[in-house]
Design a protein around this nucleic acid. Structure first.
Length: 563
RNA sequence: UGGGGGAUCGUCUAAUGGUAGGACGUCAGAUUCUGGUUCUGAUUGUGGGGGUUCAACUCCUCCUCCCCCAGCCA
């Protein structure tokens, strides 16, 4: 990736506008330094992608830097596996943090020193109220809190107690270090918030070196300061933490005071975004795992066939603002179609096979026809395809009783086989037992590409595969995970059971593809002509290739037929 | 009804006192050996009431609705 700054395109969002203004006023000596700070307690999802694109994007556009920081201050749910996964995903999305991979846990010693400073200044104290008492003392949204009886301990006593907290002399929850701010503050975050708590939990990096851990509110601003971050971008729910963020930096007297800016998190219709609900889907077995192609995780999108460029493009189109919003799936789908339309090689595959016998084509013979690999990109060339007496077409491409405007095959009608001949349907054979049908057709030998009647027009063109050369494949079709439109985080829907879409996965195990696909590698993407974009799934083996439908092609016929 | 945010086409998002624009979607047409792509056109919006102003999405005021906060989570 080039380090050349790309100037932000105008019009610019409110965050970029702020960065621009700060640069003009020399607020941070013209420096621009951001960070992407996930907690390693889960896999990244498309919502994180928005933040990643924002943070890394701004750094790049303004000639600044963006750090990757693992915000690992709560050892209970964090794992090295997630750290690994996060790095893979950020890199996969196309971003580079250089040598600036940081961990909040690397700052534990510094953070402890800052806490001592606060205690000495009389700005923090050790409290031994129980969690329940603490809640009572905090007051409510409409009632002020009251001061803890331990609020005015001497610095000496606090220092002693705090060092003993660190030394492991107390049980979990017995003591906590609190900021001394204002128990009557209308902003509850300012009512003497906890800065350190005792946790006898092995931290995935620091092991048992610590039994006290800083809270987000204490660690985050200082981590930003320690890294020289100028613009600390986070989501809206941290808006009323900003006064505390600023308080910590002010009272700790650090030289670098980053500007926190809050933007609306990404919500996608018909899916969930919270780690809790995502985890629930995995644990309940509603999906195969974190990388299930239906999941909005980066791993899931990757397996589904999404490209980094499409996701970046999507994030750019979504924009950055403060208003709560729910983005339609259509925008994501547009982004991937746009990308794959230019890059993905075309190939023919039949999802729901219908056997067609070309009666005037000699038995046991085959003929080569030439197919274009990508009409959008001539450099992708052509490939040979085998045409034979027995072929498969899509069941949807034949109707015994065709509706009006049906341009496909029906009794007595003609259709073009893509890259091959025009055929006419002369008869339909029904199997008595199975009810399966076979079409009896004849082809017009003059209508091949380059043939004398090549230009003959028929209403429809249909994709096909040769029955004798076809490759059996499995195809997995996907629909949105949820019936309802969005991941709402209000109390009601948080407790409500997710309304899962029972048809989110459909497996088609008897599909046929042209043989050129035989050696397709896992992860490679294709357009199955007239169907959609598909990607080879890791479940594939030597026996059978498995394809995930990334997204269907736009289907105007489906819309017409609905009417 | 404490505090903090927010409300602009169906969905996102611009316009900081001066023509409400773009994208996605939708609808129509053209092109097309993909009912794909591409192209052309159309479509629809400032939450409500007052006020200031030559001029208001924008400023003032009242109202309505939505989101966030009472973890020793982030």
């Amino acid at each position: 990736m080039s380090t050349e700054p790309l100037k932000p395109h105008s019009p610019v969002d409110f965050i970029r506008a702020t960065v621009l203004a700060d640069q003009e006023t020399q607020r941070f000596d013209q420096r621009v330094h951001t960070r992407f700070p996930p907690e390693p307690n889960g896999h990244l999802h498309i919502g994180h992608a928005k933040s990643i694109c924002l943070n890394f994007g701004i750094a790049k556009e303004f000639g600044g830097l963006c750090n990757l920081r693992l915000d690992d201050t709560n050892p209970t749910k964090e794992h090295m596996d997630y750290v690994q996964s996060i790095q893979e995903d950020v890199r996969w999305l196309g971003f580079d943090w250089g040598d600036r991979l940081y961990y909040a846990s690397d700052y534990f010693e510094s953070l402890y020193a800052f806490a001592l400073t606060l205690i000495r200044k009389g700005k923090a104290y050790v409290d031994n109220l129980t969690a329940e008492e603490l809640r009572e003392y905090r007051g409510t949204l409409t009632e002020v809190g009251k001061e803890s009886p331990h609020r005015n301990r001497s610095s000496e006593e606090n220092l002693d107690l705090f060092s003993r907290m660190r030394a492991g002399e107390f049980t979990e929850g017995a003591y906590v270090l609190r900021a001394k701010i204002d128990m009557a503050a209308p902003n509850i975050n300012m009512r003497d918030p906890a800065l350190y708590r005792i946790r006898y939990v092995t931290h995935y990096r620091t092991g048992t070196a610590w039994c006290i851990y800083p809270t987000y509110d204490f660690a985050h601003p200082l981590s930003d300061a320690l890294e020289g971050v100028t613009h600390s971008l986070c989501t809206l729910e941290f808006e009323d933490h900003r006064p505390l963020y600023d308080w910590v930096l002010r009272e700790c007297e650090v030289s670098c005071h980053s500007q926190q800016l809050e933007f609306a998190r990404l919500n996608l219709a018909h899916t969930v975004m919270s780690k809790r609900k995502l985890l629930q889907l995995v644990e309940e077995g509603q999906v195969q795992g974190w990388d299930d192609p239906r999941m909005p995780t980066i791993k899931g999108l990757q397996r589904r066939g999404y490209t980094p460029a499409a996701i970046r493009n999507f994030c750019e189109r979504v924009g950055v603002a403060k208003r709560d919003s729910v983005i339609e799936m259509g925008l994501l789908e547009h982004a991937i179609r746009e990308d794959l339309n230019h890059s993905a090689p075309r190939v023919m595959a039949v999802l729901h096979p219908l056997k067609v016998i070309i009666e005037n084509f000699p038995e046991g013979q085959a003929e080569e026809v030439e197919a274009v690999n990508n009409p959008e990109d001539a450099s992708q060339g052509t490939r040979p395809l085998m045409f034979s007496r027995e072929i498969y077409i899509e069941q949807d491409d034949f109707r015994e009783n065709p509706p009006k405007k049906f341009f496909r095959l029906s009794l007595g009608q003609e259709v073009r086989l893509r890259y091959a001949y025009i055929i006419r349907c002369n008869g339909v054979e029904k199997d008595e037992q199975t009810g399966a049908i076979t079409l009896r057709c004849t082809y017009d030998p003059d209508t091949k590409r380059g043939g004398p009647q090549a230009g003959r027009k028929v209403k429809g063109t249909v994709h096909w595969v040769s029955a004798s050369y076809a490759l059996p494949i499995e195809i997995r079709l996907y629909e949105p995970l949820l019936m309802d439109s969005s991941d709402s985080s209000d109390e009601q829907s948080q407790n409500a059971q997710l309304q899962l879409n029972p048809r989110s996965l459909e497996i088609l195990s008897s599909c046929w593809a042209e043989p050129s696909l035989r050696h397709a590698t896992v992860g490679s993407r294709f357009q199955f002509e007239r169907q959609g974009y598909f990607c080879v799934d890791p479940d594939s083996d030597d026996q059978k290739l498995v394809f995930n439908q990334t997204v269907s092609l736009r289907d105007t016929w489906a819309k017409i037929e609905k009417k």
